[in-house]
């Protein structure tokens, strides 16, 4: 408790998820702080996405706790967790394809306001909601695409929209599940810059396979293997750890990825 570090905004304690005989996430304890990007890496099947789903409420933990601002939120539904201020993006792009970019963001922002039940007002008549949506589009670099249908966006732009929707809900914690998946070099570069920009005001958990990106943005690095935390700490220390070198990273190829 009496650490120099300010208290973590999101913290797990021995978080565990079992699917039948398989332990997908095994007594994982990690911390997220505002102003920090905490990258979680590991081979496929290490339990990274399951961990994200536990934090976002998409899955209920088998045991263990999740503390958000000091309160145990383990087992709450995903919509409650989202309203508390924990936003997530999905590994597989998960946006409303028939809606415009603006409407995707507007809808996301709408979830934060008590206007939902004012059924005789047009949806776009609330300046506060529209402002949140516009800001999220600008932040994610999508203002040029405002009125385009989401289905017509490029893959990279859809990934940006995924983040923009998340931002429109004004979260304090961002859980980003492989935001760079399937992106070209320039798009990746833009996304890395976006994550760096967002890190100032958010606590970010970043799941990513692109090691260049991870080492470019991460303040903290956790390596997971078989559902367990193998190593956790500042990136340089983790990179040098013999256990990580032998068990997972396996040489320079991966690091230069």
């Amino acid at each position: 408790m009496a650490q120099a570090m300010p208290e973590a905004i999101l913290r797990t304690e021995s978080l565990t998820k079992r699917f039948g005989g398989l332990t997908a996430v095994d007594t994982v304890s990690i911390e997220l702080h505002v102003g920090e990007v905490h990258a979680v890496i590991g081979p496929n099947g290490a339990g990274k996405s399951t961990l994200t789903n536990l934090l976002s409420g998409d899955l209920r933990p088998t045991s263990g706790s999740v503390f958000f601002a000091g309160k145990d939120i383990a087992g709450l539904s995903s919509d409650r967790i989202s309203r508390l201020g924990i936003g997530r993006s999905y590994q597989k792009t998960n946006i409303f394809l028939p809606f415009s970019v603006f409407e995707n963001c507007r809808l996301a922002a709408q979830s934060r306001t008590p206007h939902a039940w004012r059924v005789f007002h047009g949806a776009a008549e609330f300046p506060d909601i529209n402002l949140m949506a516009e800001e999220a589009m600008v932040a994610a670099g999508l203002s040029q695409r405002r009125d385009m249908v989401a289905a017509a966006l490029s893959h990279g732009e859809q990934r940006q929209l995924e983040i923009a929707m998340c931002l429109a809900t004004r979260p304090r914690v961002l859980l980003l599940d492989e935001p760079l998946a399937g992106m070209g070099p320039q798009e990746s570069q833009d996304m890395v810059e976006l994550i760096q920009k967002l890190a100032g005001r958010h606590a970010i958990m970043l799941i990513e396979h692109d090691m260049d990106a991870v080492f470019a943005v991460a303040h903290k690095l956790t390596v997971m293997v078989n559902g367990e935390v193998l190593e956790s700490g500042v990136p340089e220390a983790v990179r040098g750890s013999p256990a990580v070198q032998t068990a997972y990273l396996g040489g320079e190829d991966f690091l230069n990825g």
């Binding site: 539904s77 409407e103 709408q110 007002h121 609330f126």
Partner: peptide
């Protein structure tokens, strides 16, 4: 209205709406 848009969102992708 915002209510109607939320219904459309639910029709399109309820899981995302909850998230």
């Amino acid at each position: 209205s915002t209510f109607g848009r939320a219904l459309l969102g639910i029709k399109e992708n309820e899981h995302r709406m909850r998230a």
